[in-house]
């Protein structure tokens, strides 16, 4: 695996301005993403996990410039792509693709599969009209669909088949990087496994880099090289998957992992979960200091006042938590 960063995200911020009240009389700011910094390495699968509203999907949209970043940089091939306008962005669009969650609504119902897959090929001039048919057939074969699907319409396909088409469409651009935004969450378990295998195969074949956004930790554990945990618009922890699952540092990560059910009845019955109390606060008025402090079992005074620093607590293991910082410096040793 190349350890070169493919993309560098620096202090990325995304705020949405909304109007509340029956007449939209109250302006408010949704703190969807606050001060996110991380690298995406060439050829890796980096997953972002967290609960709804944590900003993981916003991250994917913002770093592809589909949402205009409020602040911060996304450096790709030496360029800060989030400040590019749509026209200047176009050559990068081809290289940076996305597959969405709901295969039922990401395909234009009026276009055949062949048209949908062929459109980006022609648009980005990746093949001539004469080569188009072969190109479409190759792409469909890549995602395990027979060529005759080209003349079908999306509503004739099952969810899994549609998701294969969406992947083929992203591949048509010959991208380097694909954001998989909950790309398997809407699929049935048995079909999910098919698509995961497909994504893994394609990564090997084309040397793709994935940003895999998901809430299913079992799947994330299976496919990721590194995993980032987000909470309420901030990164809580980011490290290799082994480190994260074996040695989680952030109390939120620990709680999240403890909530994941395992397919083992005896283990599940005897297991003592560390169940978090309460709900995720509203991103309209996130808590001061560390955003997790309202639900954190080990919260200290400082947590409600000071935003914890995003730092490399262990080699390659980033975390933002006062308790972790204190634990390390206080005991001189490492926790866990």
């Amino acid at each position: 695996m190349g350890a070169q960063p493919l993309m560098r995200i620096e202090n990325l911020v995304k705020h949405f301005h909304v109007r509340l009240g029956a007449f939209g009389e109250r302006a408010a700011t949704v703190h969807a993403l606050d001060d996110i910094t991380f690298d995406i390495l060439d050829g890796e699968t980096l997953s972002l996990v967290g609960e709804s509203g944590c900003g993981k999907s916003t991250t994917g949209f913002t770093l592809l410039n589909l949402h205009k970043a409020t602040h911060g940089k996304v450096i790709y091939q030496g360029k800060n792509i989030v400040e590019l306008d749509e026209k200047a962005m176009r050559p990068y669009r081809r290289q940076l693709q996305i597959v969405f969650q709901d295969p039922y609504s990401t395909l234009n119902p009026r276009m055949t599969i062949g048209e949908a897959v062929g459109e980006p090929i022609l648009f980005h001039k990746l093949a001539t009209k004469a080569e188009l048919k072969d190109g479409i057939a190759t792409l469909l074969a890549d995602v395990g669909l027979p060529p005759r699907f080209a003349s079908r319409y999306p509503h004739e396909l099952s969810g899994g088949q549609r998701q294969r088409v969406a992947i083929a469409r992203a591949l048509a651009c010959q991208p380097k990087f694909i954001v998989c935004d909950e790309a398997i969450s809407a699929l049935d378990v048995s079909v999910q496994a098919q698509i995961i295998n497909l994504l893994l195969d394609l990564q090997q074949k084309y040397g793709l880099t994935y940003l895999f956004i998901a809430h299913d930790l079992a799947v994330v554990r299976h496919i990721s090289d590194r995993v980032g945990v987000m909470y309420l618009g901030r990164l809580a922890e980011l490290t290799s998957r082994e480190e994260l699952f074996d040695n989680p540092l952030h109390p939120y990560t620990k709680a999240l992992l403890s909530a994941v059910p395992e397919a083992d009845p005896a283990h599940e019955r005897s297991r003592k979960r560390q169940v978090l109390q309460g709900d995720v606060p509203s991103p309209l008025s996130p808590p001061s200091g560390c955003r997790f402090h309202t639900r954190c079992p080990v919260a200290m005074d400082v947590c409600s006042k000071v935003v914890p620093e995003w730092r490399e607590a262990l080699p390659g293991h980033h975390v933002a938590c006062h308790a972790v910082t204190e634990g390390i410096s206080g005991t001189g040793g490492l926790p866990g």
């Binding site: 699968t45 099952s158 969810g159 899994g160 088949q161 049935d188 378990v189 048995s190 079909v191 999910q192 496994a193 098919q194 995961i196 295998n197 893994l200 079992a218 799947v219 554990r221 299976h222 496919i223 990721s224 090289d225 998957r241 699952f245 395992e262 397919a263």
Partner: peptide, 25 residues
């Protein structure tokens, strides 16, 4: 069996192939 096998397990190696059920219901 297929359903249980397609759930990723702790013991799986990273990026190993998941056993999956081909086709759709």
């Amino acid at each position: 069996q297929g359903l249980l096998a397609s759930i990723p397990k702790l013991s799986d190696e990273r990026a190993s192939r998941l056993s999956s059920i081909g086709g759709t219901p």
